[in-house]
Write a protein that binds this DNA or RNA. Structure first.
Lengths: 141, 141
DNA sequence: CCTATTAGTTACTTTAAAGTGTCTACTTTA
DNA sequence: TAAAGTAGACACTTTAAAGTAACTAATAGG
């Protein structure tokens, strides 16, 4: 449970391991653009994620001190997640990756397009049919 | 084959998808520190990787124009791989991630430790026994 | 009194990715 | 004559990760 089957003495590898996997980056993204958010709200925003995986990701990122978990013992309970200082640091670099990605993967539609931050985020993986012009799935593997 | 089961209209997600997975970052690392390298040499440096996965990664990164493949039709053939301009751009950012990772995951042994670049790279995943004090596995998941 | 809500947990199934091993062509060298 | 080296391709097996679905506690509200 510590960190997958490949022990990583190489720091950057450890970090990449944390960030790899479906939903993780998107989750950080959502938190960085929306601020602290409750579990249910996260699940609703990250359309298509299962509670299981969402929980897994949150727990893992919490353990890495990239985000925090605030539990309010009301009934029903309210649990809020937000970026820690580490999370903020990370997002700064991810922003740069985003700039790169925009340059590489955006067909530059016309001209002066403002370097936006991950536009077009929408839904999620669909194992199902949906071959129609449905809302474009988002999030990487 | 295009890009896994999760189509990604979000640029940063597409990029992360490319960089995720075992060996990929380490491979880029090796290429950035050693310069253009031949297939066999790569396989020898990235101890533990299978030819299958190495080939897969190389092909994928070539398709992404992050590295190039130079085929010399001698006998036996010589194939050299190296970073493209994109690859170089990427490495710059990965360096920053590395700095972060060093700060986060290095127990700062004594004092003024020079922010080195991914030290301790050694071998690889071992499904096998090797519970002895063998060379520490490297590379992330 | 029955239902909805929140934030999960647990067990089971499915699947994509990685591992493993064998095979190739062509020439040089022992 | 046999072996070795290069850069893979291909088929088959294994496994970890993700998906799916059912279930929980405690209270408020109709």
């Amino acid at each position: 449970m510590s960190r997958s089957r490949y022990p990583s003495p190489c720091p950057v590898s450890m970090l990449m391991e944390v960030l790899s996997g479906p939903w993780t980056m998107y989750l950080l993204w959502v938190l960085s653009t929306n601020g602290p958010t409750r579990f249910g709200a996260l699940k609703r925003r990250i359309e298509g994620i299962s509670t299981k995986v969402l929980t897994e990701r949150l727990r893992m990122l919490e353990q890495e001190e990239i985000l925090y978990r605030h539990y309010e013992p009301t009934v029903p309970p309210q649990v809020t997640y937000g970026l820690t200082e580490r999370g903020q640091e990370l997002v700064v670099i991810l922003d740069q990756l985003n700039d790169l990605a925009l340059r590489w993967y955006t067909p530059l539609p016309d001209e002066h397009s403002p370097s936006e931050r991950c536009v077009g985020l929408a839904s999620a993986p669909t194992v199902s049919p949906a071959p129609t012009v449905s809302p474009a799935p988002t999030v990487f593997k």
